[in-house]
Each structure stands twice: as structure tokens, then as C-alpha cells.
């Protein structure tokens, strides 16, 4: 029986929706190809958490745990994944498109001489040849890519498949891999982390402000809205160029490419580069004074109005909603 191996990255011992999506996706490929869906987890994750993955169709979960793996050492992690693929004889390997996947999947690709598709947008269109759809030019076009190698790696774009439940009996197995000490060559000397802050690439909801916010001092209600929704904050390029917000928040073609479930574009007119960076969001809400602003062509819901006036009302409305739900 052929196998699909899904690498599920944990965040302090917990899984996120993005993991459930790739497990759902991997399980669906397994179903279509008559294969078995196996999940690999690296790090200290409680069994209860691992078992959750069975809800989405995984029948076996391999858990690798080793004290040396507290910090992300790309070479070591990639080596564990490659060993699991080889040991299981998996032919298809599924990753998310998180920052960690960007660091690991390409290494696994080289180790296994396995062709890789990043930012895949759906199930393989055919198995022979193995053809996967993906985004190119930041969503300005899509491409079908054929992977020619025996082992195939797919990094799935967030929110392009969704979460499907297919509960299975699951076995949790300890995975053993041989990892030499010599591959631990990076040392983490300090961690600066604000708790509760969410990494843009992983955020399910993003609240983003543009030039219409008029200045750094007006960001408080935007942050409030993000807090209420458990969202990450972001901004358009002029905002980070002006220094109103840090560069790490710049979303767009030359900043970060994001694909949350819900993206709020507040006071952002929607330059082509900005839209290219957010167009894969599932739902976009735009608030802008100019009804001709290009952002409304990409948005699902729009409000024409001054963001300074609309935003406080949104804060109240969503706060009310959250308190009632």
C-alpha cells in the first residue's frame, strides 16, 4: 500500500487549523490513490493532541521527540522527515506553506531527490503524470506543475483546501531516527517573544491598515479590533515606509504574502502589489473613502467611509458579537 506522509508542525505542543487542513488534504489524496495517510510530528506533543489528527483522516501518527530538537535546526528536522519518508516508503509528502515548511521541505526535497511544489492550491489534477496546481506571480496566474520524481512533495497554500473530517482509528507510534550531533550547528542565544502576538503568515484573521489611517497615533482601535478577533495586525507598504508600523507588518508583493481566512483592509486603496499579497485570503473586507479604490474589486464586503470613523464602530460591533458568541 502506498503512503502519504504529512508533516504536522506544532506550536508549543499544539496544532493549529493549518495542520488540520493539510491532514485533511493528505488524507484526501490517500483516499484517491488508495494509500494510507500518516502524520509525522517532531517535538514534545501530548498524545491527546496527536490523537486529534485522526479526526481529519490520519490513521497513524508518528511522533519523534528528542531533547535536541527544542529549537528549529533545519538540517536535523529535515533529516528526521526524510528518514520517516524512506522508512515508510511514502511517495507523497505534504507540508503546509508556513515559514517552517519553507525552511524544511526544500531540504527534504534535495535529500530525497523529490520534486517539490510550493504554494499548491488544490488536489493533484492527475496522478500519472503527477500534476499539481499552484499560484504563480502571487496569484496573478495559476500553473499546473508536473512532478517527475518518484517521491513528490507538496506545500499547500493555506485555505486552499479547507478542513474535512473523516474520523479514523488512529495509532500513535514513537518514531526513532538516527540524527548525528554534528548537524546541530545553529545556536539560539535569545528569544524575544510577546505572548499572544500572532505571526502574520500563520494568522487566520488579519487586520491591516493603510495610508487612510493617517498616522501611527491612530492605530489603537485597529489593535483593539485585532485583539477582539484574535487577529494579527498588518499594514500596507506606505505605512511601513513612513515608519508608522514596523516592516515586519508590511503585507504585499514585496512584503509578506498572506492567505488568512479573513483580511480587513482598512484605509488601503489597494495598489496592485498590495492586492497580490492578499488575494488568496478567503474573505476580504475593505473600508475606504473612495468608492473607486481598486481594493473593492478584490474585496468581498466593502464599506465606503472614513476608516477613522468606521473603525471605532467596528470595534464596538465585533466586541458585542464576541461577548454574545
Amino acid at each position: 500500500m502506498s503512503k502519504v506522509l504529512i508533516y504536522a508542525e506544532n506550536f508549543d505542543g499544539k496544532f493549529k487549523k493549518a495542520n488540520f487542513e493539510i491532514v485533511s488534504y493528505g488524507a484526501e489524496i490517500a483516499r484517491q490513490t488508495g494509500a494510507e495517510a500518516i502524520v509525522l510530528s517532531i517535538g514534545n506533543v501530548p498524545d491527546e493532541e496527536l490523537k486529534q489528527l485522526s479526526v481529519y483522516g490520519a490513521s497513524r501518527v508518528l511522533s519523534f521527540n528528542d531533547g535536541r530538537f527544542d529549537a528549529l535546526e533545519n538540517q536535523a528536522y529535515a533529516s528526521v522527515i526524510a528518514q520517516a519518508v524512506e522508512k515508510e516508503g511514502a511517495e507523497i509528502v505534504v507540508f503546509s506553506n508556513s515559514n517552517t515548511s519553507k525552511a524544511l521541505a526544500p531540504r527534504v526535497s534535495v535529500k530525497l531527490k523529490a520534486g517539490m511544489v510550493f504554494a499548491a492550491t488544490g488536489l493533484p489534477k492527475s496522478i500519472d503524470p503527477f500534476m499539481v496546481p499552484k499560484k504563480v506571480f502571487h496569484g496573478k496566474a495559476f500553473a499546473d506543475v508536473v512532478i517527475k520524481s518518484p517521491i513528490k512533495i507538496i506545500c499547500l497554500s493555506q485555505n486552499s483546501f479547507g478542513i474535512t473530517e473523516d474520523a479514523k482509528a488512529v495509532s500513535i507510534e514513537t518514531f526513532v531516527a538516527e540524527i548525528d550531533d554534528t548537524v546541530f550547528k545553529t545556536r539560539v542565544t535569545n528569544v524575544e517573544k510577546a505572548t499572544g502576538k500572532i505571526l502574520l503568515n500563520d494568522a487566520e484573521i488579519i487586520v491591516s491598515g493603510g495610508r487612510g489611517m493617517k498616522g501611527a497615533e491612530n492605530w489603537k482601535p485597529l489593535e483593539d479590533l485585532a485583539d477582539i478577533l484574535g487577529a494579527a495586525t498588518a499594514c500596507s507598504r506606505p505605512v511601513s515606509d513612513e515608519g508608522w508600523r514596523p516592516h515586519s507588518e508590511h503585507v504585499g508583493q514585496t512584503g509578506k504574502i498572506v492567505a488568512p481566512n479573513l483580511y480587513f483592509a482598512l484605509g488601503i486603496s489597494g495598489a496592485i502589489q498590495h492586492l497580490a499579497g492578499v488575494s488568496s485570503s478567503k474573505v476580504i473586507v475593505a473600508v475606504n473613502t473612495d468608492h473607486e479604490a481598486p481594493v473593492f474589486q478584490e474585496a468581498d464586503y466593502g464599506i465606503i467611509g472614513d476608516v477613522q470613523k468606521v473603525l471605532p464602530q467596528m470595534v464596538e460591533a465585533f466586541r458585542k458579537f464576541k461577548s454574545e458568541n
Binding site: 526535497s109 531527490k113 523529490a114 520534486g115 517539490m116 511544489v117 500534476m131 496546481p133 504563480v136 496569484g139 496573478k140 496566474a141 495559476f142 500553473a143 499546473d144 506543475v145 508536473v146 512532478i147 517527475k148 520524481s149 488575494s279 475593505a286 473593492f296 474589486q297 478584490e298 474585496a299 468581498d300 464586503y301 466593502g302 464599506i303 465606503i304 467611509g305 470613523k309 468606521v310
Partner: peptide, 22 residues
């Protein structure tokens, strides 16, 4: 190379934006 781009597609046109009163 291990992969090959075989076909391209333009993005699907998006449905019209639903407007909500401010």
C-alpha cells in the same frame, strides 16, 4: 529539474463586492 510547468490559467474573476452602509 524535478518539476515542469505545463499549463497556466488566469485567476478566476471575483464576485462583486457586497457594499455595506457605513
Amino acid at each position: 529539474a524535478l518539476t515542469e510547468f505545463v499549463k497556466y490559467e488566469p485567476p478566476q474573476p471575483k464576485a462583486a463586492c457586497k457594499m455595506i452602509d457605513a
